[in-house]
Simulated assay, not measured.
Amino acid sequence: MSDGRGRPGDRGAIFFLTDYGQQDELAGVVRAVLVRLAPGAPVVDLTHEVPAFDVRAGALALERATPHLGPGVVLAVVDPGVGSARRAVALTVGHPGGPRALVGPDNGLLVPAAEALGGAGAAVVLPQAAAEDRVTFDGRDVFAPAAAALWGGTPLASLGAPLPPGNLVRLPEPRLEVGGDAIEAEVLWIDRFGNVQLAATVADARAAGLRPGATVEVGAAGVSRPAVVVRAFADLQEAGAAGDLGLLVDANGHLALVCHRDAAATVLGVQAADTVTVRRHGGGSPSGPSTGSPP
Rank of each mutant, 00 (worst) to 15 (best):
M1T: 14
S2N: 15
G4Y: 08
R5S: 15
L17M: 07
G21W: 06
Q23D: 12
D24Q: 14
V29W: 04
A32S: 15
V33D: 11
V35T: 14
V44G: 07
D45A: 11
H48F: 05
V50Q: 06
D54E: 07
V55A: 09
R56H: 13
A59V: 13
L60M: 07
L60V: 12
T66G: 05
P80T: 10
A88P: 06
A90Q: 10
L91Q: 10
T92S: 15
G97E: 13
A101R: 12
L102P: 04
V103P: 13
G108Q: 12
G121F: 00
A122D: 08
A123W: 05
V124D: 13
V124G: 13
A131K: 00
E132C: 04
T136V: 11
G139N: 04
A144T: 07
A146E: 12
A148G: 12
W151Q: 07
G152E: 10
G152F: 00
G152Y: 00
G153W: 03
G160L: 11
G160I: 11
A161I: 04
V169G: 03
L171N: 10
E173F: 03
D181A: 15
D181T: 13
A182G: 07
E186C: 10
E186D: 09
G194K: 01
N195K: 02
N195W: 00
A200T: 01
A203S: 13
A205F: 03
A207Y: 01
P212H: 05
V218Y: 00
A220P: 07
A220L: 09
R225E: 09
R231K: 05
A234R: 15
G240W: 01
A241K: 14
D244H: 06
G246T: 03
G246A: 06
L247H: 01
L248E: 03
D250L: 01
A251P: 03
N252K: 05
G253R: 04
D262W: 03
A263D: 02
L268P: 01
L268W: 04
V270R: 02
A273E: 14
D274Y: 06
T275F: 08
S285F: 08
S287H: 04
P289S: 02
